[in-house]
Design a protein around this nucleic acid. Structure first.
Lengths: 130, 130
DNA sequence: CTAAACCTTGCCGCCGACGTCAAGGCAAGG
DNA sequence: CCTTGCCTTGACGTCGGCGGCAAGGTTTAG
């Protein structure tokens, strides 16, 4: 299959597929006229890439998963390198969740204080109006 | 005070202060030779900007807080526009927390399944070795 | 014969908060 | 006078995952 068909079947663009190729994630062979030719397995690879990107992985992080799929495994997750990346990413997400939780608390408090201050000011204004 | 002193006292760079100025957040007057002159109040403003940036605000979001400070309020948070931004940001953070939580669960499950698969494969390998 | 619909490579644009020169002006001390 | 250390504006680089356009070649349908 050529790039346009793969793009459509994978729900992405030809530009994106070429971009993945420059980053070593997808490897089509070429037909006589220079067109990229992908076999069916690449569809699976592209889906894997997209799924991992959607979860917040970078292209570099995804490489081991693709290699794992290419090595014949039914899932890209099961190879040691993939597991290592999964662990690292989980740790990163946990870190980020902590920091974001702290930010949330700060915003909440800041908002509460601002509103309290506004009500207090409002009360004083009404007292002056009496 | 000139830009170098303000930068040092605010714990940032002159480049940053000029950048804030191009985005309308800081307004120094100029001395005869064209140097930027800041008064003491600007130090407070810069601290406010830095604090909000650290929490994840964009410069556009910060503008109301600076205006609030300039309007003479003791805190940049208490003006209606600031409160509106705080509410919006809190909602954004809550959204992001939800999505990040979902990502965390997915990563966790994916990792668990990958490890389970590896152990299962390992068992089969040992069985073959028996 | 020609238009339409593919494909190719290459390169600039985007977002955001700056960093990092470059090239020059101004002030003060030795 | 010369150096040192401020200051000025201007402009390009960063990071990542592409979008979009240019300028061409190829193939197919009518």
């Amino acid at each position: 299959m050529r790039i346009g068909e793969l793009a459509e079947r994978a729900g992405t663009s030809t530009r994106t597929l070429r971009y993945y190729e420059t980053h070593g994630l997808v490897r089509p062979r070429r037909s006589a006229n220079g067109y990229r030719i992908y076999d069916e397995a690449e569809l699976r690879v592209v889906h894997e890439i997209r799924a991992l990107l959607a979860v917040g992985f970078g292209l570099d992080d995804i490489r081991p998963f693709v290699a794992c799929l290419r090595a014949g495994h039914s899932s890209g997750d099961v190879c040691p390198d993939s597991v290592a990346v999964l662990r690292r990413k989980l740790a990163e997400v946990d870190d980020y969740l902590d920091r974001l939780g702290a930010v949330r608390r700060q915003l909440h408090d800041q908002l509460a204080r601002a509103i309290a201050h506004r009500e207090e000011t409002c009360l004083r204004t009404r007292k002056r109006a009496d």
